[in-house]
Each structure stands twice: as C-alpha cells, then as structure tokens.
Amino acid sequence: MIEAIEVLLKHWGDQLAQNGLGGGLPSTMGTIVEFAGCAPRGGVYGARLLVAGAGPDYAAAEVNQVLYGIERLEGGSALVRLAYARYRNEPRLTIAEQVDALELGKGDAGRRAYYRQVGVLHERLQAGLLERQGKLAGMRREARRDGERMRKAAAQQAGAAHRGRGREFEAAQGGQGAIAAHKAHKAAAKTAQADRSSGDSAS
C-alpha cells in the first residue's frame, strides 16, 4: 500500500460523493434542500473546472482519467470495482463486506487477496499519474519552444519590415544615405534649440 495514493483515493471518493463526475449543475432548490443552504465549495480556484458541487476538483479528475485507463487493461475492471467499493461506496462497507462483494474468497485468504489487490491498484494508479504528469510536462516544454519560435519569427519579420520602410524612405529622399542625413539634420536642430534655450547663441 502506498500511503500518498491511499490519501489521494480517499479524496477522490469524497469528491465523487460530494460533486459527482461533473457535466451538469444541480438545481438551486435541490441544493438548498440537500445542504440546508449553499453547497460546500470544491475545486481549485483559477482552474477551468467548475466549483460548488459542479464536478470533482483537478486531483480527483486526474484519478478518474487514470482509472479509466486501468479499466481497459487486463484485470483492470476488478481493480476499478475495488476502488469504488473501498473509497466511493456509501454507506462505507467494512473490509469483510468488500471482500464478499468483490468475491475475493473467504476468511484470511479473502483478506490477503483483498490487500494484494489494493497494492496493485495503488501501484498502477501511481504509475498512471506519473505518466500523465510526464506527458503534461512535455506538452508544456513544447508549448514554450513553439512560443519562442513564434516570438523569434515575429521579431525577424518586424526587423525586415523596418528595413523595408527604411529603403523606401531613402528612395523617396534621394537615394542611399538619406536616413543618415535625416538623423544628422534632426540632431543639428536639437543642438540649435538647446543653444537658444541656454542663451549661448548670438541674438
């Protein structure tokens, strides 16, 4: 058993009990009747997931996705049934009741088989979550590289456009060197203005 995965699965079960799998909003009157007021707020603020009873938070949604993947593997459906029996079922079942419901055997043999299954569930879930996080990190790196390429291309395009406008200006002002002459003229005008302001120039 992996303690961190056990905590995460308990959170997943609580989220499903409170918020369901998402996809819709509860009615206002139904929420007031169920909770005697406003629904408890769940979810992660700033995320795109809805809050206040409209679906599981990010962590629980990630567990859901990995469980869907596990279910498609050999023996995975039994592990998913175990996850629902251990972490989601309301009212909560005792270990003996879970062993009986999952048909894992009788007595000590059934309990040993049950805890072996819990261990396998934890290992597969941890591996699936790490794989998803690795893929997400790769997607983020690729997005950053794409962004850098786009910024570089935009800077090059802007530079080329600026140089093109410079050539057009020179052509309109009498050929190559017109830009330098224009800058020198502006600098001379600024110097003359500064001299007049300081009183250094002759009246």
Score class of each variant (00 low, 15 high):
82 L>D: 03
93 L>C: 05
166 G>N: 12
194 A>F: 02
198 S>G: 01
71 E>P: 01
100 D>S: 09
186 K>N: 14
11 H>D: 13
183 K>C: 00
127 A>Y: 11
31 T>Y: 08
191 T>N: 09
190 K>G: 02
45 Y>L: 04
71 E>Y: 09
144 R>V: 15
81 R>V: 06
54 A>V: 04
142 E>G: 10
76 G>S: 01
114 Y>V: 07
9 L>R: 05
70 I>M: 03
83 A>P: 03
198 S>L: 11
144 R>D: 12
193 Q>W: 04
86 R>L: 12
67 L>T: 01
29 M>S: 13
93 L>P: 02
47 A>I: 01
87 Y>A: 04
122 H>Y: 06
61 A>W: 05
30 G>P: 06
155 A>W: 08
71 E>K: 09
148 E>F: 12
181 A>I: 06
97 E>R: 10
71 E>V: 15
91 P>A: 11
49 L>N: 02
41 R>P: 00
37 G>F: 10
24 G>L: 13
190 K>P: 01
70 I>Q: 00
55 G>P: 00
193 Q>P: 01
187 A>M: 07
14 D>E: 13
185 H>G: 14
25 L>C: 15
84 Y>V: 08
98 Q>H: 05
137 A>D: 11
49 L>M: 08
80 V>A: 03
191 T>M: 13
43 G>L: 02
140 R>Q: 13
99 V>H: 01
40 P>W: 01
86 R>H: 08
97 E>L: 00
27 S>H: 04
157 Q>L: 15
156 Q>D: 15
52 A>Y: 02
35 F>I: 01
86 R>C: 04
70 I>R: 00
67 L>K: 02
134 G>T: 07
141 R>S: 00
201 S>H: 05
56 P>N: 03
186 K>C: 06
131 E>A: 14
90 E>N: 14
26 P>Y: 09
171 A>R: 13
18 Q>E: 12
190 K>N: 10
171 A>T: 08
14 D>A: 15
106 K>C: 06
179 I>N: 11
76 G>F: 04
63 V>G: 07
